[in-house]
Design a protein around this nucleic acid. Sequence first.
DNA 1: GCGGGTGTGTACATAGTTTGTAGAGAGTCG
DNA 2: CGACTCTCTACAAACTATGTACACACCCGC
Lengths: 310, 310
Amino acid sequence: MDLPAARFRIGELSRRTRVSPELLRAWESRYGLLRPERTSGGFRLYSEGDERRVRRMRARVRSGLSAREAASAALEEDSSTGHATAVSPALVEELDAALMAFDEPGAHSTLDRLFSAVSIEGAIAQAILPELRSIGARWAAETVSVAQEHFAATLIRGRLLGLARGWDEGRGPRAILACLPGEMHDIGLISFGLLLRSEGWRIVYLGQDTPLEAVFSALERSLADALVLASVERRRFRRAADDLRHVARGMKIAIGGAGATEAVARRLRATLLGPDPALGAVQLRADISGSSRGGTRIDLTAPVPGDSPA
Amino acid sequence: MDLPAARFRIGELSRRTRVSPELLRAWESRYGLLRPERTSGGFRLYSEGDERRVRRMRARVRSGLSAREAASAALEEDSSTGHATAVSPALVEELDAALMAFDEPGAHSTLDRLFSAVSIEGAIAQAILPELRSIGARWAAETVSVAQEHFAATLIRGRLLGLARGWDEGRGPRAILACLPGEMHDIGLISFGLLLRSEGWRIVYLGQDTPLEAVFSALERSLADALVLASVERRRFRRAADDLRHVARGMKIAIGGAGATEAVARRLRATLLGPDPALGAVQLRADISGSSRGGTRIDLTAPVPGDSPA
DNA sequence: GCGGGTGTGTACATAGTTTGTAGAGAGTCG
DNA sequence: CGACTCTCTACAAACTATGTACACACCCGC
């Protein structure tokens, strides 16, 4: 993972983080956020670590902190936690072993270490979702029992929900997340919400099996920038489509989960989210700021065939 | 995700607490409610502790105290960390107000205080279950909307699941808890689990919609002393009865939820749990140690008509 | 009931702070 | 040479501090 330390200049950092070069320099001189190397001619040379620090700073600012406080938080977090960027495969194996053995304390303690070793988002994207996908695959191949699958999904859902606090605070754009009526598979959607949150969004999470009435009510209240709907079954989208269509006008809608197809997306004038939640979060941000272009699908609801098995 | 001591300015505090900046300053100068740090330029910098204090103040004001008394109460509560044994009705009212107003941060902060004021079990038995029952009643009377009910149930389920850690550790008797296949109403069962846990039991929690296969698998592994099954619908018990009957031999079974009737209990040779989880926990302990006496029914799954509404 | 005092939330004017952005002029890189 | 970057300065918008004023409700003694 330590590649030969790629270095890039301010324009590149600006493009990657969507923070203007002027502002990057201001953050450096005012708050000491960055301490880039220099070329012999004096150009700044940044590393990926700098990029992460900028992202953290930006997320804090979006969550309502002043620039100065955001910078000091981003710097502090930098030094305090020796956050690795990659999850050790051993840890994922350990998680899998605990889940397969119905070892609840073991699984929780592994998850504790996972979350303290890397960011929550990293843990989700690099360990939890891959593990769930792996379980799903083995379940399909019948090398994992229904009981094991159910245990793993229930434990992980509880853990993720425990992380879902203060979702709606701060200042970023706001997304409303809901599973369609009848849909109980919510692990993918919760993961997506956590990743979106780390991108600076505020989340209004409506959960499993959300009555459309609750969706409308949330829309009326919350000045949302986007509505994200998920279901593994296409018929749920079809059933809800008519009611949702007249919402689609003023509102950016995104749909995900195995039931979300291109046809449904066209019908609702919605963005079709791809199978990778991390990419999906970026995609949604891009969509909001203008260009609408369907990328890969996000598998919002089915990292495990039955995360709430039927 | 817990940021290191984030400090924020008055506008952010205002947004978080929904109290105007003018009023925050007035509360500070008039009652000394807050004592924020200052930037070099003189801007106030608040902490999360300040935020909590404002929320407490606001809650007291809403419940009828004068501003001056509310402030002194909020300040006092700050210093006294002593565990009360009874939940203050004001706190329950505050929880209700936050839930009905879709105020997620407010609800979480009220729950935080609830849990820190009394034990988790006390909070559940004295505040959360009554509140859920009250919402259920008002939902039936149509003074609470589907959206409100769904919001409250989803938030509280997430919170309770977050408490469900290390359930299976220790040395007490062990109970396996599961909702029958298809059954999604699990808030009552989780509450029951938490109360049972506080009675010293170890809990194996299988969750919503548990395949019978997962139940059997857990039984084989765990040397359990009791099996607790819940459903709001009688047909789920009927459907599962045959498969469960031959389990009933070596195992103490208890059933609860609106679908659990005396007839079903007789058929499964199970104990019928009453509507009050706290009593139910005591009852189950008594049953295990010998005498089997059905008391009142535990409403394991329906403190809210649709805690996972369909 | 009725004036006057009090408690409380809100509004405003004026001054100062914070922060993102912009431009000039010179230098660097490929 | 063109595109990019450097430093320094400036500036405007948004926010905040302070102090004062005001509207309204409530309570009190009469």
